[in-house]
Amino acid sequence: MTTSETDIIVPAAVLWDMDGTLVDTEPYWMQAETDLVESFGGVWTHDDCMMLVGSGLWASATILQDHGVDMEADAIVDWLTARVQLQLSERGVPWRPGAKELLADLKAAGVPTALVTMSMLTMAQQVADLIGFPAFDTIVSGDMVTHSKPHPEAYLAAAATLGVDPEHCIAIEDSVPGVAAGVASGAITVAVPHQIPLPESAQYSLWPTLHGRTVADLATLYSDRHGAHERAKAANSHRVKTTTESAPL
């Protein structure tokens, strides 16, 4: 953690989801899923697409198999990833509003960052390379972990690689599984809903967009949340100590 000229403490690192948070690739995934299911004579609806938003690729592969895709799970993951990567190459990267700008601001401020995605490493690296500057200090992808989101493994792995405590990190997410993973890791979590609305919750901060957001906004959030957490821990410690001291012999 470092302090700025205004003595606002910044987080130890900022951990970014990719699909739906950094880039609006969900329509690419939906098109790939639809093409694959229809190639086997099945039907894949918009509601089916929405069901997979934020899910791990191998979990999605199982659902696609249930809809008639007669392929091994690994083959499904490879097929979908290749199709989405092709769309990225042909149609470009649809950046989410404010995401690249906030990444650049974090880079200028020297705040470590990680890309934490359930997509394959090849695709995550493709997106990272297209940002135009070395935005991420590390990448944790879906093929690098055993458990997909909402399990916190990917976020815990990213924090460990950066050598920071996840409780001193901010995770930025857009989906229900992603937000749950961020919260479960202990990171202060920012939910920026995209395809699926997210409710207000004391467990995370709900931001309608990243447009116009800066390092100062993240620093304020971190200071407020971490300060409240430390005060709660101190109060609890005081209660335990008082209870112990006043207990009868």
Results as ranks from 00 to 15, higher is better:
T243E: 12
C49Y: 03
C169W: 00
D165I: 04
L162H: 00
S141K: 05
E230V: 15
A73Q: 12
G54V: 10
G110A: 07
L103V: 09
T220S: 05
V14L: 10
T62R: 15
P193I: 00
G92L: 10
I63W: 08
G92R: 08
R225T: 13
I188G: 01
G92H: 04
S237C: 12
S148L: 04
A184R: 13
R213N: 05
H238G: 08
A216L: 12
A191C: 09
T45K: 01
D174F: 07
P27I: 04
L64V: 03
A235W: 07
L22D: 02
V116A: 05
A12T: 00
S223D: 15
A171W: 03
S119M: 06
E153I: 09
T25N: 08
E33Q: 03
T45H: 03
L206Q: 08
P150E: 15
G212N: 10
T146M: 12
S175Q: 12
G186Y: 09
G56D: 03
A157E: 08
D165K: 07
R83P: 07
H226S: 14
S55D: 11
L102Q: 02
M120W: 04
S89E: 12
E90L: 13
A180L: 09
K233C: 00
D17A: 05
L156K: 04
P134D: 09
A109T: 07
L198D: 13
H168K: 13
L64I: 05
P94Y: 03
T117W: 06
H226P: 00
I76L: 04
R96W: 01
T34W: 01
E173M: 01
T138I: 08
H147S: 09
D137K: 02
A12M: 01
G68I: 03
P177L: 13
A181I: 10
T3R: 11
L221T: 08
L15I: 01
L115M: 15
A180N: 13
M120P: 07
A158R: 01
V10K: 06
R96T: 02
E33A: 00
I196N: 10
E5D: 15
V240M: 10
V145W: 08
Q87P: 03
W79V: 11
H238W: 13
G56Q: 14
T243G: 11
H168V: 05
K241R: 14
R91A: 05
A180R: 11
F40M: 02
D217A: 05
L64F: 00
T3N: 05
A234I: 09
S4N: 12
T117Q: 11
M50N: 12
T122E: 15
G132H: 06
V43P: 02
P208I: 03
A158Y: 06
H147G: 05
R239M: 11
G92D: 10
V190A: 06
I63M: 09
A187K: 02
G227D: 14
L210C: 08
P208T: 09
